[in-house]
């Protein structure tokens, strides 16, 4: 029969072993939140961080520069999707056109970013990847019923605070 002290020790050891198993004995999935973050302050879900978005026409031979927006705001919005989330969720918007409503949702897993919105003229879907903490690149597609357009996109962190409505 174990003494109380021995029971405590055994319990303590069990907790430690359990802790070790849960930490090292199981293949831990890549849990969110996933740094580097699009919005450095993930504890504030109201204020986000500003990014520049440069777009290029992917379907043209020379990928001509189409333009840039320095007004893309990412606001951290928690984990996606509980109870066993694998991704971070962000709101994103173009702060220069809040009334236009160009805004949507972004999720992030590792350094991969997935974005969509359907509040503008077209549906938008993007997939890009952070190369450094402050810069990444990928693809952006916009479409409607009988139309689509493929863009290359480069995102660069500006770092100023911003808010989406």
């Amino acid at each position: 029969m174990l003494t109380t002290t021995a029971k405590k020790r055994t319990l303590k050891l069990g907790v430690i072993v359990l802790g070790m198993v849960s930490t090292y004995g199981w293949a831990a999935p890549p849990l969110p939140p996933h740094p580097p973050y699009l919005d450095s302050n993930i504890t504030d879900i109201r204020e986000g961080e500003l990014w520049k978005m440069e777009v290029f026409i992917d379907s043209k031979l020379s990928h001509p520069f189409l333009g840039q927006l320095e007004t893309i705001c990412f606001v951290y919005d928690g984990l996606y999707s509980p109870p066993n989330p694998s991704q971070d969720k962000y709101k994103w918007c173009d702060v220069a056109s809040p009334s236009f409503g160009w805004a949507g949702v972004a999720t992030k897993e590792g350094d991969q970013v997935f974005m969509h919105n359907d509040q503008g003229k077209f549906y938008n879907g993007a997939q890009w990847e952070l190369t450094s903490k402050d810069e990444g690149a990928g693809h952006w597609r916009l479409w409607e019923n009988n139309f689509f357009f493929d863009l290359n996109v480069i995102f660069t962190r500006i770092g100023k605070p911003c808010r989406c409505q």
Binding site: F56, S62, H63, F65, T131, E135, A137, G138, V153, I154
Partner: peptide, 19 residues
């Protein structure tokens, strides 16, 4: 890696790629 930006030429050589 993949070329993401405008593909440059002699006048505008800058071209960016990521991977």
């Amino acid at each position: 890696w993949e070329v993401a930006s405008e593909i440059g030429n002699q006048k505008q050589p800058s071209t960016k790629g990521y991977g």
